[in-house]
Design a protein around this nucleic acid. Sequence first.
RNA 1: UGGGGUGUAGCCAAGCGGCCUAAGGCACCGGGUUUUGAUCCCGGCAUUCGGAGGUUCGAAUCCUCCCACCCCAGCCA
Length: 557
Amino acid sequence: MTEKTAGSNFIRQIIDADIDHGKHSEIVTRFPPEPNGYLHIGHAKSIWLNFGIARDYGGRCTLRFDDTNPVKEDAEFVEAIERDVRWLGYEIGAVAHASDYFEQLHDFALELIDRGLAYVDSLPAEQIREYRGTLTEPGRNSPDRDNSVESNREQFERMRAGDFGDGERVLRAKIDMASPNINMRDPVIYRIRHHAHQRTGDAWCIYPMYDFTHGLSDAIEGVTHSLCTLEFEDHRPLYDWFIANVTAPSEPRQIEFSRLNLSYTVMSKRLLTRLISSGVVDGWDDPRMPTLSGLRRRGFTPASVRNFIASVGITKKDNVIDMLVLENAVREDLDPVAPRAMAVLKPLRVTISNLPEDHAESISVANHPKDESFGTREVTLSREIFIERDDFMLDPPKKFFRLSPGGEVRLRNAFVIRCVSVENDADGNVASLVCEYLPETRNGVQPEGRKVKGIIHWVNAADALDAEVRLYDRLFREANPRPDQDGEFHEALNPDSLVTLTGCKLEASLAAASMDTRYQFERLGYFCQDPDSIPGHPVYNRIVTLRDSWAKAGAAG
RNA sequence: UGGGGUGUAGCCAAGCGGCCUAAGGCACCGGGUUUUGAUCCCGGCAUUCGGAGGUUCGAAUCCUCCCACCCCAGCCA
């Protein structure tokens, strides 16, 4: 599990330059989610960036909940978010909440009022919007814009005291209603919300807005570099304005980078919520979700997620990363550490006719093909075994290396068998096979003139374990899924994103499998147990398939 | 058509005026090893950096103009 080196990026270059200029004695960052949903892999990019920088520069990174809107937030989310950040493997310098700073923020607001830089506006929301102007036309001043400091002070005190209902007053920064940057047209900095906050309860009925809260919270925490996504780029002048016009304890710098987008999935909280509410997936931790909890349940390792982010880099360019890159990252992480085992997902019974009824030989099998430290295990082979239905074809195409009538194939870790007859069920479908084994092919011997290219896995019938296996695939069939007119996903969905298989056969040694070991089921992919497993009824999730150039060739033509 | 951004291969991404006849990864195409059609190994894959001009002995890197795409008019974050 080698961690990819962080590499350089434009943000680290800025920090390096700042350090060279002696601007900071310590680098301080923060990861600031709003607790209104679960973290997804896009957040992992920010976590990797912020915590990675703090770690590499010997600084610190705070997990700060941006909890300024009580109507959207919930304690459930703050717990889930902290769990996910820890799972990703980072040391959290401190856990903070913007709500910890409500009193200080309130003081800063008072300071702005006293300086004549903020005023209480009684215009209703709709009017404020009209007065704001448009992208191409300047706005107009509110009638309340020139009220006295005393009046603003008194009005703001009454806002806090609860004298007004929701929406009856707001506190606004007095900047410039004609600014070409709409964010500077007297932005609202406090609004009234008579709603209990998940942490502060009923202590407040006015809540600060994001722009006012964020930069000032950064300043309170001594954040040196405030890293956020591109859509906040034109909020930066406002971010700087608040810090410049209040006695801020420090002067953080905001730097923006592009969000992560992944093909064949969606990343917005709104759309992920929609998938859950419309029943497309089972919840935030459905293994098909791009959430960290979904990926964790699916079996992805924290290192694979970190390596994935490292491999895509940090820039300001809009991007869509191919899902294959993520899949590649888990395979790369798991290959050297996953013990191998044999499992048959769609069993086809095979009788080896030239083996006695009571035959039961024990074969010593390596647990890893390249790493002897994994040791070996014993696997029993007797007259009745299961092979994968996909490994047998009545009428095989060219270059099909597996079994067919009269054909030969090697049983992995054992000998070559030849298919001598096929038995059908009442509907005429293949029900079972009768094969005979070739004694001279034991121990890997490839007798003169016999070229058996195919090697298939198998499971001994007598002591096989029954299991349920869930095969996951991309949630969408379209690379860039968009909701339909009704806001739901229909056409874009991949109908086979979850295939549940029961009656799968696992080799007996898996009876001792632990919940947190990720196995490679040879020739199939990487698998791990789902929390739905109960004793006697194991449930496995397929984390990712193995690369399969045969399937790919088939799909191509 | 106001403001803010971004454009290097199918997807990411190094590059910061000469060491670039442009790193690396994914994908793709060969070939080798292999009792996983896996892994691993070796080779191929941009005479060209959104376009057009210009500066310079020298430009992906500097300048000008143009084009394309993304973001912004919440009392959301």
